[in-house]
Write a protein that binds this DNA or RNA. Structure first.
Lengths: 346, 346
DNA sequence: CTGTTAGCGCGTTCAC
DNA sequence: GTGAACGCGCTAACAG
């Protein structure tokens, strides 16, 4: 179990020497293949265990056996990551699957989108990863061109419809938006607004499109679609602007929790009561929602499971097992906590 | 600049073939060493660039040139990570330094402390990392034994005094506690409490010891030292218990922001006003502090810079440059926002 | 000087 | 069960 001080990391050659057999035999034994007697095999395994041997990742990768590593680039301002509950939880979910399989996660955090594309090429050229996760999918995403070009296995985390031929793992945003709008309509609201994320993201567009369509279907007036950068301040500003209108919405759906929290503060500061005068609904349910006052009703996704699904899909792709062109979907549920109420009388 | 479809990742052999020279010559050219004419060198570099060549990480590692990778194990319940602003920001800081140098971060998130030790051995045996960051330092930390045994370069993120011969990067917690207590005393408080983190962590002990010492020095009564797991719920419970005492504290210092937020809610729910009846001070200033009502006063550390310092130190260690046994320190400053007020009249 | 050849590091695998 | 070759980049020894 130990590997005593200073001997350097154990190799097959060392094990071969100690057991008095060839390196090839050791390899067969360690990999559970035929070619060695049960007796020698046992001896070899014992010595390997004593030395704490593990195969050199470098040697395996060199032989073409894969790197046992997958990559994730998070394109965000580093300082913003601390409050972005999504990524850390998503990474934790990924880890849960990877570590069981002996895979490691190579991470890069950078605010620079160009760097992300470069990183994919570098990782591929240097043979550092067997596959990658691609998040924040954009319309006509140039990263897909690069990945197609170099042929690096990838799983798109997002709307499958925009993922071309890549395997995708996505949540059913349109369905969630539909459920939310139904509930909002049920509470008597007729004028609603949508405070969304960055316009470039596919999931922003999907949600916005769904809002408009469902609004029309339900006879509601979607008075505004506002794009933000997901920041607290953007939520404050958006809410203030909406409330300053001649005919302000009576309910607002936010694309993340941080903007929704900002909106509650903005409304309260203006003397607008939540939910009596204004209903607020957040997308993604982090602890922030419970900390807000009143606590926020939210569309809850199981982000940990989302990460796990993405990781399982990528590993399957890397294994070449299923030709996983298929689509996975996790669903969001509406958690009501008090920021969502009946529409005020006209 | 591209590497066209399907050709597989470019190798030195390919470049050699295209330029009509030997692989050795290509290697010399690519590494800026003498042995090739300027002319050939230029040709080689051009082809390499066109193919998007990058050295195989595996081959380099195999040759003993290092893996250009460092590791970090985060021992936390995955679900808790989403609200733990510390680690994500810390990781972002690390990344800022690593990516400039072409290093990658290998990450593992696991709730199992035993797994962490195992991971260090595996990473070392498999030659996956050149060094690691060690966080959440404990008293008589068994991980230090393992790292000493295998001789893997490591930087301890925490109190240098407990880091044995390892290089350490730590913040001056005792100094910060001192400054906080001075300010609390200045506001007239005489009965204070400290709601700390897990007892096993060195930095918990350091802070607790500092609190008691400074309290005595300032003639204050530290009525309680409570250990928690940093969770919101633990903050709620701790606050309720403290307020239920015969002589409750008039000010409480919390070791993280989440417990402090929980405490504000618990106090408010009991009809105890913050800061009129009870002053609350958080350690580490994440956006949560601003979202709380009233916004929390906090001991602010520059966690991003903390991560950067740790990364720089580890890289120096890996390079073998400075024999960085030295100690770094970043200081916390007190940000007052309104949860800290004058002591109520007896 | 300009360039080539050969062998290393480590695990895997094919032929014997 | 053994010996040898392979994958890839680096470098010491050697040749023109």
């Amino acid at each position: 179990m130990a590997g005593r001080t200073g001997r350097g990391r154990p190799t097959i050659a060392q094990i071969a020497q100690r057991t008095g057999v060839s390196a090839g035999a050791v390899s067969y034994a360690l990999n559970g293949r035929p070619g060695v007697s049960d007796e020698t095999r046992a001896r070899i395994l014992a010595v390997a265990k004593e030395l704490g041997w593990a195969p050199s990742a470098a040697a395996r990768a060199l032989r073409g056996g894969g790197t046992a590593t997958v990559g994730l680039v998070i394109t965000r301002e580093p300082a913003m990551l601390g409050i972005e509950p999504f990524f850390m939880t998503f990474v934790a979910g990924i880890e849960e699957v990877l570590s069981d399989r002996g895979y490691a996660l190579l991470l890069q955090v950078t605010p620079d989108p160009d760097r992300e594309a470069k990183t994919y090429r570098e990782w591929w050229s240097a043979n550092r990863v067997d596959g990658i996760f691609l998040t924040d999918l954009a319309i006509d995403d140039p990263r897909l061109d690069i990945l197609e070009d170099i042929g690096l296995p990838a799983v798109v985390v997002g709307e499958p419809a925009y993922a071309r031929d890549f395997a995708a793992v996505g949540s059913d945003d349109a369905g969630a938006a539909r459920a939310a709008m139904r509930r909002i309509a049920e509470l008597g609201h007729r004028r609603v607004a949508h405070v969304a994320g960055p316009e470039s993201f596919v999931h922003t567009r999907v949600r916005s499109a769904a809002m408009l369509e469902i609004g029309a279907e339900l006879g509601m007036d979607v008075v505004a679609e506002v794009n933000t950068d997901y920041s607290l301040q953007a939520g404050v500003t958006a809410c203030e602007d909406l409330l300053a209108r001649d005919e302000p919405p009576t309910a607002i759906l936010f694309d993340n929790d941080l903007t929704a929290v900002g909106a509650v503060r903005a409304a309260t500061a203006r003397g607008v009561r939540v939910p009596d005068d204004l209903s607020i609904l957040a997308w993604d349910d982090s602890p922030l929602c419970q900390l807000s006052d009143p606590p926020l009703s939210a569309l809850r996704r199981d982000i940990l499971a989302y990460g796990e699904d993405a990781a399982r899909t990528l590993l399957r792709l890397v294994d070449g097992d299923g030709v996983t062109q298929s689509v996975r979907t996790s669903t969001a549920t509406l958690v009501e906590r008090g920021s969502l109420g009946r529409a005020p009388r006209a």
